[in-house]
Simulated assay, not measured.
Amino acid sequence: MDNIYDALRESHEVQRRLCRQLTRIRTYDARAQEIFRELRIELAAHAAAEERFLYAQILLDDMGLKSSRHALSEHHEIDECVEDLAKARGKPEEWLQGVKKLSHEVHHHLKEEERKFFQVSGKILSERRKQVLAKKYRRDLERMRLVVAP
């Protein structure tokens, strides 16, 4: 049976793949816009579901307070990068810089989360709770993908 970390890693891989695709296009065109749209939806849906079904649980425990707050702040930084990139439409130089920055922030966050936050939260949550949270996260992720899509 999978757990919350297995579920989260699936979305992390989607995010990594979309970031790689976006950085390799190098030009602002229709395909870049479509990849950006997919990435924006995945990031927003993932963050919402993750914050509800993992971060909120860990914030309740003193041992997880610092790491949860840090992870939440990184979600906010990623949101700001997405907003900046959306504003760079039609500005090739700003677009390229924005893509690089967003990709860097996403990769940094995912790496740190998988290597640090998962370990801290893994000590807080029981195995059964991890399985229950995986189901809730997956349902909410699918729902949020529809909610945040324009």
Rank of each mutant, 00 (worst) to 15 (best):
E93C: 09
V82E: 04
K91V: 15
E94F: 07
W95F: 10
H107L: 15
E93Y: 15
E93S: 11
K135M: 04
I78A: 07
E127L: 08
K101Y: 06
L102W: 04
A88T: 04
A88S: 08
E127F: 08
R115S: 12
C81H: 06
W95C: 04
E105V: 15
K87T: 09
H104Y: 13
G98N: 05
K116S: 12
E94S: 12
H107I: 11
C81A: 10
L96M: 10
K100L: 14
K111G: 14
L110I: 13
E80C: 10
G122M: 05
L110K: 00
E127Y: 06
G98M: 08
K130T: 03
I124C: 03
K100A: 15
L96V: 13
L85N: 02
L85Q: 05
R129K: 15
L110D: 03
G90Y: 03
K100Q: 12
K91E: 12
G90E: 09
V120I: 10
R115D: 09
Q119C: 14
E112N: 08
G122F: 00
P92Y: 08
R128A: 15
V99A: 05
R115M: 14
E114Q: 07
V120C: 02
L102Q: 09
L125Q: 08
D79A: 08
F118L: 02
L133M: 03
Q131P: 09
D79Q: 04
H107M: 11
A134L: 04
K123D: 03
Q131T: 07
E105G: 09
E127I: 13
Q97H: 11
L110T: 06
E114G: 05
I78H: 02
I124D: 00
E80L: 12
L85T: 05
